[in-house]
Design a protein around this nucleic acid. Structure first.
Length: 869
RNA sequence: GGUCGUUUAGCUCAGCUGGUUAGAGCGCUGCAUUCACAUUGCAGAGGUCAGUGGUUCGAGUCCACUAACGACCACCA
């Protein structure tokens, strides 16, 4: 015994020093693990948290799950790598700093200028990054800090540039004019999935362009009608079908419009007048129609939300002012037919909430459909879809495969340029009408680099391989170094809300760059909600700071509370009571260890691993048997990503079996069995991935090595300990009899079934019943099987612990069981004799049913034997 | 409009391919406690598994429909 253990576990005394000990050991880095060369690798890349803010409890859940997987595999002989990092989160971060700047100095980023503003951002990034990394360590995350990455550091900048150039050369990246989601406040484009839809009331105006125009149209945005070049109707619409193909010139609010009538099935006949004014430049749907019909595209609104020149009296007005003016004029001219309130979905920026203006704009795009040589001419989209459908990438829970596939199939080209300052610069250069794509500006004067930056998902999409040395570790399609050893990674663990935003992009980028999947499994966790089931958010103020809870209850308690009661893909509620109850459990484990380790002798520590011969009593064999099944369950559950089930099983073993029964028996023994220390070691090893701090703290109190690296052989297979359960039932029976005062003077209580299992000492049974005095034993050898083996005298009370099963009771129990089994067998037989079922059922189903039948029949045979005896 | 999820004890949730008496934690009730642990122990109460119908020898589990709640996607010009 090296250290005395305190009465309760105080996490604050251990966590920091233990984390330092782990880090100093170097074993977070798999290169230092002394594993044989052929050890399988196990790689997890940490989803890099945005450096916009410190971590919240949801991140803690992510870290707990990943650290569990990582520690488990590290303890089981895998070359285990978990790569840490942070994400620069371009738009989000820039917005954050702009807001801060405005609040503190009243200045905009333009007031500061490009360089000074980026310096502000850097300072902000450094601060939050430091906080995030500190929080991550506090959680006990066993990340390889030597490989720490940032999506915007030098190595990643190099990788991103290379990727851009490769994609451009291959024709996957192109520059073109497309309608994009434009945020007038951020002054930048947004990807489709960065646009949020908010429900609101809107006015739907129905009117004619002019008095002589034959068809009325409906719109919520009359100001865009200044740019109409077409009128679309459903080709099935009898009312208007005769106009299809006509070119109509008309006068709209004093401006000339040339309108071509086209047919398009996307037009809903029931909505409005069933006719749609086509505004190619300001609606994504209209743009598509215009492309198909070769309509002119007239840009009405500029990037700041102002009506452009050459629109007469409306030029220079904001969209809202122009709308008002047009509505007034339509009313005055008697062209307005109807104004009605409708429910409408407004497109808003997911970062700042401003209304999105669809605009045509010259941007960089990734074509998801372009053929890629490395993929044998398949596109990234096709390759990604195939990986999912062929289950090269497995989703957990598997329903997310469908969501992934659906989204992928409907994917359009991805706009990757953003008009913000903070982010990866674009390796493209312009001079007049010339464009050059390359790492450096070409020779000659006057070349100016593209002022835009790349979508943040471009760099995070490369995360699985940009963190493993790509492109330096990939020459001539051959992987080397980290990339060869650790890619594809085994598991991507992340929240389901970024399945499309991030996961899909990683698959495509990896397919393009390496021609292989980025990960074998995608494990998607749910969202952590507050105790009332509401989403946590800053504005609601219901967020939880992990550091505060850790300080109060310890990191292990926080981890365990997030791991237990959470299943993949489902949201989970957080409450402090849960953390508290886990803290209590951890203290229980502490005290179990304290009891076992008290007065421990050195020779007890140097026990042989083959513990089975020291199992002398029924209780010994029972606990070893339970240990064996628990280890199996825990192992299988973790490998199947059923972490809560693994924890439940361990929890049950530790508290209900080990503490409540085996330790109680052990207290009565004169000498401590070496089995105690053996069980404790197993328990600590198994718990370590869940609650690393307390287990390591306990381990170091009686071992010289480090638990984090401890591999432990499987528990011995003991199969003859189950009868101890009968004793437990009997003891419970006596306890109940006593507590209900059913034990009257001189009354005999038949309860305990010690029987021929005499090695469980009768004195122990008595003590476990809470009977401490007046124990008188009868020699078992002399007692007939159904007679008393022990007589306990408590004052006037005599209690007999019987030497055999109560034959009546046992017979009744067996008979009941027999009846049940017979019913089951009869039912199953009916099915198996059903010709239709037998001929139709697949072979494996048939086998399962047959096995089941065989199992029931053998059980029945056992019971019949027992009944005879 | 489309897709998906949830509904099991007072609360939070397990329950894998249909199979013997539906589980856990918390809470509640009663009792105990100088003994590793009151961050404790023992015992107990509490469920027609949202509803209806179907498949089956057998349904919490499979199918259909209904209801409530929730998420996501698309979009109405």
């Amino acid at each position: 015994m090296k250290n005395e253990l305190a009465k309760t576990y105080d996490s604050s005394l251990f966590e920091d020093s233990i984390y330092t000990k782990w880090e100093k050991s170097g074993f977070f880095n798999p290169d230092l693990s002394n594993l044989p060369d052929d050890a399988p690798s196990y790689t997890v890349i940490l989803p890099p948290p945005n450096i916009t803010a410190k971590l919240h409890i949801g991140h803690s859940a992510m870290l707990a799950i990943e650290d569990l997987m990582v520690r488990f595999h590290r303890q089981n002989g895998y070359r285990t790598l978990w790569v840490p990092g942070t994400d620069h989160a371009a738009i989000a971060t820039q917005n954050m700093v702009e807001k801060k700047l405005m609040a503190e100095t009243g200045k905009t980023r333009h007031d500061l200028g490009h360089e000074a503003f980026l310096r502000e951002v850097d300072t902000f990034v450094e601060n939050t990054q430091a906080t995030i990394l500190k929080q991550t360590r506090k959680m006990g995350a066993s990340l390889d800090w030597s490989r720490l990455a940032f999506t915007l550091d030098d190595k990643r900048q190099k990788a991103v540039k290379r990727m851009f150039l490769d994609m451009h050369r291959e024709g996957v990246i192109y520059r073109g004019e497309r309608i994009v989601n434009w945020c007038p406040r951020c002054q930048s484009t947004l990807a489709d999935d960065e646009v949020e839809h908010k429900e609101q009331k809107a006015k739907l105006y129905t009117f004619k362009y002019s008095a002589d125009f034959p068809i009325a149209i409906s719109t919520t945005r009359p100001e865009t009608k200044l740019g109409d070049t077409g009128l679309a109707i459903n080709p099935k619409d009898e009312r208007y079908i005769k106009y299809i193909g006509e070119d109509i010139e008309t006068d709209f609010c004093g401006l000339k419009l040339k309108i071509k009538v086209i047919g398009d099935r996307k037009v809903e006949m029931d909505f409005g007048t069933g006719a749609l004014g086509v505004t190619p430049a300001h609606s994504a749907l209209d743009w598509q129609m215009a492309e198909a019909e070769n309509l002119t595209k007239i840009k009405v609104i500029d990037e700041t939300g102002i009506i452009r020149d050459s629109f007469g009296e409306f030029s220079g007005l904001s969209t809202l002012e122009a709308r008002e003016k047009i509505v007034d004029r339509l009313n005055a001219d008697g062209l307005m037919i109807k104004e009605e309130e409708i429910e409408n979905n407004l497109s808003c920026c997911y970062r700042c909430g401003s209304v999105i203006e669809p605009l045509p704009s010259l941007q960089w795009f990734i074509s998801v459909d372009a053929p890629v040589a490395r993929l044998n001419g398949r596109s990234m989209k096709e390759a990604a879809l195939e990986a999912a459908k062929k289950k090269d990438i497995k989703f957990l829970p598997d329903r997310f495969e469908k969501r992934f596939v659906d989204w992928m199939e409907n994917l359009y080209d991805w706009c990757i340029s953003r008009q913000i300052w903070f982010g990866h610069s674009i390796p493209a250069w312009y001079r007049g009408d010339e464009t050059y794509v390359g790492e450096f500006a070409p020779e000659g004067e006057g070349w100016i680099q593209d002022a835009d930056t790349l979508d943040t998902w471009f760099s995070s999409g490369m995360w699985t391989f940009s963190t493993l040395g790509w492109p330096d570790t990939f020459e001539n399609d051959i992987k080397s170094g980290d990339l060869a050893r650790f890619h594809p990674t085994q598991v991507l663990e992340t929240g389901y809300e970024i399945l499309t935003l991030w996961v899909s992009r990683m698959v495509m980028m990896s397919m393009f760059a390496l021609g292989e999947i980025p990960f074998e499994h995608v494990y998607l966790h749910g969202t952590i909600l507050d105790a009332k089931g509401k989403k946590m958010s800053k504005s609601k103020g219901n967020g939880v700071d992990p550091l505060e809870v850790i300080e109060k209850y310890g990191a292990d308690a926080v981890r365990l509370s997030l791991l237990m009661g959470a299943t993949p893909g489902n949201d989970a509620r957080y409450s402090e009571e849960k953390v508290e109850s886990k803290r209590n459990f951890i203290n229980k484990l502490w005290n179990i260890s304290r009891f076992i380790l008290a007065d421990l002798k050195d020779e007890d520590l140097n026990q042989s691993l083959d513990i089975t011969p020291t199992a002398k009593t029924l209780a010994d064999r029972w606990i070893l048997q339970e240990l064996g099944t628990t280890r199996k369950t825990v192992d299988e559950s973790i490998r199947n990503f059923e972490f809560a089930a693994a924890a439940d099983s361990l929890h049950d073993f530790t508290w209900n079996k080990l503490a409540d029964w085996y330790l109680e028996v052990a207290k009565i023994e004169k000498e401590k069995s070496p089995i105690l220390i053996y069980i404790l070691k197993n328990v600590l090893v198994m718990w370590h991935p869940f609650i690393p701090y307390v287990t390591e703290a306990l381990w170091e109190s009686f071992n010289d090595d480090i638990l984090m690296m401890k591999q432990w052989p499987a528990a011995p297979e003991v199969t003859d300990g189950a009868d101890f359960v009968i004793i437990q039932e009997a003891i419970t029976g006596i306890r109940n009899a006593r507590s209900e005062n059913k034990i009257e003077p001189a009354r005999k209580v038949k309860a305990v079934v010690v029987g021929n299992k005499a090695e469980f000492l009768v004195g122990q049974a008595a003590l476990l019943c809470g009977l401490r005095t007046g124990v008188e034993t009868i020699d078992l050898a002399e007692a007939a099987p159904s007679e008393a083996a022990i007589r306990v005298v408590l004052g006037e009370t005599e209690i007999y612990l019987l030497g055999a099963v109560d034959p009546e009771k046992e017979k009744a129990r067996l008979t009941k069981e027999k009846e049940n089994l017979e019913k089951l067998i009869a039912g199953l037989s009916v099915r198996l004799q059903n010709q239709e079922f037998v001929s139709r059922a697949p072979a494996h189903i048939l086998k399962v049913e047959q096995d089941k039948l065989a199992r029931y029949q053998s059980e029945l045979a056992n019971i019949n034997d027992a009944l005879k005896a």
